[in-house]
């Protein structure tokens, strides 16, 4: 039961992420990306990581994608005003993409197949346990990443501030 649900959701994740690329309308792309994030939320629930699931739901689906959609709607991109790309750029793009695929496949082949992952503590993803882990053994990385976010935030505010003449 669990495995078949996983394969179904994994198929949906890949399907919708491909749709993100193939959709011609940028707003459709963003909507497909939202569905892709939703399938990720389901993956987290399957792993019993409830907190991560709901945070993924709030932050990615509820906040970041709203902003994406917001910007796209304001820009109102469509095929009419999209700048035409020259043949040279297209060829370079194809070659670059192929190189990336070859590198990725090569590096994947080099790694050994991993052992099936067994969760030591299946309740690790519940809020209390996750909090204890984050503020215990992983205190320093956690605080450092929060400083990183704060820096980005201050930077963004600074960029939008008009210079005083």
């Amino acid at each position: 039961m669990g495995t078949s649900v996983f394969y179904l959701v994994a198929f949906l994740s890949i399907f919708f992420s491909l749709m993100v690329i193939f959709a011609k309308n940028p707003v459709h792309s963003v909507l497909y990306l939202i569905v892709t994030f939703f399938t990720f939320t389901v993956h987290y629930i399957l792993l019993n990581a409830q907190f991560l699931a709901v945070v993924n739901f709030i932050v990615y689906m509820g906040a970041i994608m709203v902003l994406f959609l917001f910007v796209l709607m304001l820009l109102n991109l469509n095929t009419d005003n999209e700048p035409l790309k020259s043949v040279l750029v297209k060829v370079v793009g194809i070659i670059g993409g192929c190189c990336l695929v070859v590198t990725l496949i090569g590096s994947l082949k080099a790694t050994a197949a991993s052992d099936p992952l067994i969760l030591v503590n299946p309740n690790l993803g519940l809020v209390k346990n996750l909090g204890k882990e984050l503020f215990g053994p992983f205190m320093l990385p956690f605080e450092l990443s929060s400083i990183l976010l704060l820096t980005a935030m201050v930077g963004a505010v600074l960029l939008t501030k008009k210079e005083k003449v």
Binding site: Q50, F51, A53, V54, V55, F57, I58, G62, V127
Partner: peptide
């Protein structure tokens, strides 16, 4: 995580 669910 009921409270966060509502928020989501």
């Amino acid at each position: 995580v009921g409270l966060l669910y509502i928020f989501g």
